[in-house]
Simulated assay, not measured.
Amino acid sequence: MTQADDTVQTRWAVLGPGAISRDFVVGLRASQHGVLHAVGSSSAERAGAFATEHGAAASGTYDEILARDDVDAVYIGTVHTTHAELAIRALEAGKAVLCEKPASPTLEEVERILDIAARTRRPFLEAFKTRFGPFADALRELVAGGELGALERVEGAFGFAAPVHEGRLFDRALAGGAILDVGCYPLSLAIDLAAAAGAPIDAPEYRRFEAEVVSGVDGSASAEIAFGGVTAAIATSIIADLPRTAVLRFTDAEVVLPNAWGSRTESSSTLIVRRGGEERVVEVPVVQPMAAEADALSLAVADGRLEVPQMPWSHTRAAARVLTDWREAALAG
């Protein structure tokens, strides 16, 4: 299958029949190269109910689904602490893996996943939906093109006020907290654009970490991190609504992203370029981001590639390194 070939489809299995997997299945219907084929769960009964609801042909336990030879790729939509085990089992079963972010709560576990992916020669992609589509492409092109000068600073926040302080988000044993749940988004943006600017992303300089611990997890947190000449100032929260904007500061201009993160059904579309007292609004096409990330993995499978250019393994490692250190500092405070 090539990018122009829409006739061959990836047969997907969803592992973990929860809310975000339901959103992925909705997105998959808009994909060019994927079809839902199977559902796996720790509970065969839950898997069966989800499969019936969404029209999947097969269901069963994780082991039963991973043993099937009619499954090409899996989407992992379980809690953070189970990602590594399921990803490794899927890779060793010969499946391509799209794993919901974060790939795992610690850099050590992420390295294990990527080592297994390299050994088994199966593609692995961390599911940062904001990395896919015309909006993300336009940002990379602005940074790499140099027309606005050098990128100096990325400022972004992602936070919401959870209605109750309980459940997965506030469970330390399940790696709850703001940093891993939504703080990873502004961090991933900063890493993506620092890399596009040619800055090193594998040796971050930590200038500031701050956090407020709530119910044993990082309820809110902020950080300032330098990737070479690009500084990232990021904030996150699960106890307060934060603006969904981001600002990219260049030597000769700034770019404002009014809705930096989009949604699970639509990518962002608007960039505002401010330069020399003038303002230019740029609109780009919207895509279904979960469909786009699924198709990106399908193309990697077809082309025999282990990595997807929009979210290469070096970026997954860089994000895991900072998330591990940021969260450790937050919970130690």
Rank of each mutant, 00 (worst) to 15 (best):
I239M: 05
A194V: 00
A232D: 07
S220F: 02
A157D: 07
A199T: 06
T236V: 07
A195I: 05
L148H: 10
V154H: 00
D192V: 05
V213Q: 08
S237L: 03
A235N: 04
L180I: 06
R244W: 10
L169N: 04
F250P: 01
L187V: 07
E212F: 08
F227I: 06
P186K: 00
G229Y: 03
G229P: 10
K129P: 00
L148N: 02
D192Y: 00
E212C: 08
R153I: 07
G156E: 00
D218K: 00
I201A: 02
A233H: 00
V164L: 14
V217E: 03
I239R: 01
Y206F: 15
P243T: 09
F170M: 07
I179W: 01
L242F: 14
F158P: 03
G159F: 09
P186Q: 05
I201S: 04
G183D: 05
A221T: 10
V214Y: 05
L242H: 08
K129D: 09
G159L: 10
A175K: 00
G198H: 06
A232P: 02
A235E: 11
L248R: 04
P243S: 13
R207H: 14
F250A: 02
L248S: 07
D181R: 11
A240E: 15
A136S: 15
L148V: 08
F135C: 08
D202W: 12
P134R: 12
L193Y: 07
G145I: 12
G146F: 10
V164D: 15
D181V: 10
A211T: 09
A195L: 08
V217N: 08
T245D: 15
I238M: 04
R140D: 14
F227Y: 15
P134V: 12
G133C: 11
D241F: 10
E141D: 14
D241G: 11
A136K: 05
A211W: 05
G156A: 14
G145N: 00
V214A: 12
A221I: 08
H165D: 11
L151K: 06
A150R: 12
L180R: 13
G229M: 00
K129L: 14
R249I: 12
A197N: 04
I201W: 03
D171W: 05
F132D: 06
A150V: 12
A221M: 09
I234V: 14
L142C: 08
G149K: 05
E141L: 09
H165F: 14
V164Y: 12
A178C: 14
F209A: 10
A175C: 12
F227E: 02
